[in-house]
């Protein structure tokens, strides 16, 4: 965030504007970084679930339920990042 403040100051912005600009920039970073891990995690999870369903189609219902649960838990991290994005952006 300090880096943004310096860049904003160099661009000729003053005080609050510089702060707002740096907040906007770091909010984007916060959400982008928070989305990496859950993205990988959900991809891996769904891929494995599809594999399991293809191997054992008779267990598809159970696998699907568990898959949604796993997605819900994994996704929570990305969503917390989104909330942080809103909080910083305010």
């Amino acid at each position: 965030m300090e880096a943004f403040v310096h860049i904003a100051a160099a661009a000729g912005l003053t005080g609050d504007e510089a702060k707002a600009a740096s907040a906007a920039g770091s909010a984007g970073f916060a959400y982008g970084l928070a989305a990496i891990g859950p993205g990988i995690g959900i991809g891996y999870l769904v891929g494995k679930s599809v594999e399991a369903m293809a191997r054992q189609p008779e267990a598809a219902g159970m696998v699907r339920t568990t898959m949604f649960l796993g997605i819900a838990f994994t996704e929570a991290l990305a969503l917390i990042g989104f909330v942080v994005f809103i909080l910083i952006g305010l």
């Binding site: 819900a72 838990f73 996704e75 929570a76 969503l79 917390i80 989104f82 909330v83 809103i86």
Partner: peptide, 13 residues
């Protein structure tokens, strides 16, 4: 917390 944030953030997003 995660129940709240999951529902809220998904719909807001």
């Amino acid at each position: 917390f995660s129940l709240t944030v999951r529902l809220f953030a998904n719909m807001l997003a």
